[in-house]
Nucleic acid binder design. Structure first.
Length: 286
DNA sequence: ATCGAAAGGGCGTCGTCACG
DNA sequence: CGTGACGACGCCCTTTCGAT
């Protein structure tokens, strides 16, 4: 699809929009960034997305109107319509199927008060992971779920949230929860910070990335790893209540870290996009 | 007006890598 | 070990442009 002819003027078939001001900025932060995201749709890549923004097309609904003026792009239109409907119906499980992790960082601030930072602790049991503690931090309150105490309440609590943020959750936390709890289904959108941070050049585990960014943990849990979490659980099983307190403190440090890393990832990606959009905006005037 | 070549952009596939 | 992301590559679709 071309948006300009040989003279450089914009070419498309929606007459009322032909005089849209060409801006070189990203969509304003006041609008949900996820719904200003088009590059995951079939037939639209990062460059096209950037050009759409510069034409003043800033939401899925804008894009839908724009596409209706064009005869082709049936696949894009069809996919977009499903996503608009899923968003309207709050069917995050349906919507999630359309949203690859590479663009999920954009949802970071789209669900204020309805975002859960989740981390699980496990220990090996019969060749599988047995969940011991699950922590949920929503930006205001922290709630630990402990096996044998209140773990069965986790699904109900999680159902309040529309975005769940994890580190490595696509490969670890979510599949493990599903396998262990049996009836567990994630009905929220899922942002896995591994993908967000990796595309920024941050590889390695959570602790390694924290170190690289100079994040300091509470001295009580500083230096603890997943292996220590297993050891602490066993001590707790043997009757040591302090071990559970420490395990929960460790889990708390993890989920608080997720919140920081999500913000960091968003800011870094936003800046990156800003610089790319600027250079692409220059191209528009070539 | 029609046709075919060329160009640009996006997508699918495959192999590789690295996480918990 | 299972899984998803990434990069390279080639193909496809759309559009433009020149020749007829």
């Amino acid at each position: 699809m071309r948006l300009k002819d040989s003279s450089g003027s914009t070419m498309y078939k929606c007459p009322q929009r032909t005089r849209a001001p060409v801006s070189e900025t990203l969509p304003p932060r006041s609008i949900p960034f996820l719904k200003a995201t088009f590059s995951h749709l079939p037939g639209i890549g990062p460059q096209m997305e950037c050009r759409l923004w510069s034409l003043g097309i800033l939401t899925w609904e804008d894009l839908h109107r724009w596409l209706l003026c064009r005869t082709r792009r049936h696949k894009t239109l069809e996919s977009l319509e499903t996503q608009i409907q899923a968003f309207r119906d709050r069917r995050w499980d349906v919507l999630a199927q359309f949203l690859p992790q590479r663009i999920m960082w954009r949802a970071t601030h789209d669900f204020p008060g309805r975002t859960a930072f989740l981390d699980i602790e496990t220990h090996p049991m019969g060749g599988r992971h047995a969940v011991t503690v699950v922590g949920i931090w929503d930006g205001k309150a922290y709630c630990p779920y402990v096996r044998g105490r209140n773990l069965d309440e986790l699904s109900d609590h999680l159902a309040r949230y529309e975005l769940v943020v994890t580190f490595g959750g696509t490969r670890f936390d979510i599949p493990v929860l599903k396998a262990f709890l049996g009836n567990f289904t994630l009905c929220a959108l899922h942002l896995d910070l591994i993908s967000t941070l990796r595309t920024l050049g941050f590889t390695g585990g959570l602790k390694k990335i924290e170190q690289r960014l100079g994040i300091r943990r509470d001295p009580q849990v500083d230096g603890l790893t997943g292996r220590d979490a297993v050891r602490l659980w066993r001590s707790y099983q043997a009757g040591d209540q302090n071990a559970l307190t420490k395990l929960i403190a460790y889990n708390y440090a993890d989920v608080r870290s997720l919140e920081f890393l999500a913000d960091f990832g968003f800011e870094q990606h936003f800046r990156l996009l800003e610089s790319k959009t600027r250079s692409s905006g220059e191209d528009l005037h070539d």
